[in-house]
Design a protein around this nucleic acid. Structure first.
Length: 378
DNA sequence: CAAGCGTGGTA
DNA sequence: TTACCAAGCTT
């Protein structure tokens, strides 16, 4: 890691901010510095690309114009607005924080990074971003861009996958940040990281801060930032039960914590659980034998008598950060007066379904059913 | 602290 | 297809 002199820091700030003044992106949340606008955009932008966020942000502001509107919004409407954006706890925390602001802070925003971080869903990065952009506090906002940009500029070789490394960068940036224009400084770093100093195909030759980019100057730009790799997603096989009677579909609500918390899906049965019903070694149970055990599992766990039929085509796959689901879709039938008292779900009609939020994987399952069995279109 | 938590884009 | 990345936070 190299260090800059005060003079170099001054030159860097001037170069960066001059470039930013000329080339900054025109984004919906940059029309003003309203903390509500900055906040909502920053939450949406967590682990999510600008292009993806834009339509969500615009719709969100139309539906929930103020923090008070968000605080009192029905959860179903909130989730529908967030549908497809992922990391759904962000939306729930957003509303929690809105209620904190209204109920505990009398509608007044904490105006420092330390104060902001007490709000649900606001961590060190987001607190720094809001504090610097909306309240002009000279604090760093260390996101993936800041990690990458400063790792290259100064050849910082700490592993950015390790939580403790954040402190190293916060300390460095605290010294380098513009005291006069901290919000613009932080946003300029992000713009730089998403234009010239990208992860894969950087174009530092044309970067405004080329002369400050020590990793580039030394020809080792792609060695930075140092980041340990994550393991690949674990594959999990499920049977998905499409059970429909006329206009209604039998669905289950997922637990209130964990993956896709509180969302409704088709009943999803882990293939491993079904195979476990067999006396044979799990590795020796054929696909056909496993399929034949599904009704037994359903009877034992849901108290329902079903007959199942596999649909055509490949399984539906969906990859999360740490899991890959492989869902074999089965159509199933149950008696019209089936007793659902042991079933962890209920019938949903097409009107309900059309107003509810569903995760992408269920969306894929709906689409596959319509494709394979057009009469299932609700 | 390490692991869990979604989705879409790109090479 | 796989691998990795994209304005992270919570437990």
């Amino acid at each position: 890691m190299i260090e800059w002199t005060d003079q170099q820091i001054q030159a860097f700030q001037t170069t960066l901010l001059t470039w930013y003044d000329q080339e900054k992106r025109d984004l919906p949340w940059r029309r003003d510095h309203d903390p509500y606008h900055v906040w909502v955009s920053e939450i949406m932008l967590q682990q999510t690309q600008v292009q993806t966020v834009m339509p969500y942000y615009n719709r969100f502001m139309a539906q929930f114009p103020t923090v008070a509107d968000l605080a009192t919004a029905p959860e179903a409407k909130l989730m529908k607005a967030w549908e497809g954006l992922g990391y759904y706890s962000r939306a729930r925390n957003l509303q929690r924080a809105a209620r904190q602001i209204v109920d505990e802070y009398g509608g007044e925003w904490p105006q420092t990074a330390a104060g902001l971080q007490k709000l649900a869903g606001i961590g060190p990065y987001t607190a720094g971003a809001i504090a610097s952009i909306a309240f002009n506090e000279p604090v760093p906002a260390v996101d993936g861009n800041a990690f990458r940009v400063f790792a290259r500029l100064l050849k910082i070789d700490d592993d950015i996958a390790k939580p403790q490394t954040r402190q190293v960068f916060e300390q460095v940036i605290s010294r380098v940040i513009s005291q006069e224009r901290p919000g613009d400084f932080n946003q300029a770093i992000m713009d730089l990281g998403s234009s010239y100093m990208t992860a894969k195909n950087p174009d530092s030759e044309h970067s405004p801060v080329k002369a400050f980019n020590q990793a580039y100057l030394d020809g080792v730009e792609l060695d930075y930032p140092v980041k340990t790799k994550k393991p690949r997603p674990v594959e999990v096989a499920y049977y998905g039960l499409a059970i429909q009677q006329g206009d209604r579909t039998l669905m289950v609500k997922r637990p209130s914590d964990g993956l896709l918390a509180n969302f409704w899906t088709y009943p999803l049965i882990a293939k491993a659980d079904v195979v476990a019903l067999s006396d044979a070694d799990p590795a020796d149970v054929s696909d056909e034998a496993a399929l034949a055990l599904v009704p037994q599992w359903v009877k034992a766990n849901y108290g329902l008598t079903v007959t199942v039929t596999p649909i055509g085509g490949r399984p539906v796959t969906h990859t999360f950060t740490h899991r890959k689901w492989v869902v074999t879709l089965l159509t199933a039938t149950v008696a019209a007066d089936a007793d659902l008292s042991f079933f962890p779900g209920k019938w949903l009609d097409s009107v309900e379904i059309s107003t509810m939020a569903f995760p992408k994987v269920q969306d894929k399952l709906f689409k596959r059913m319509i494709k394979e069995k057009p009469m299932y279109r609700g």
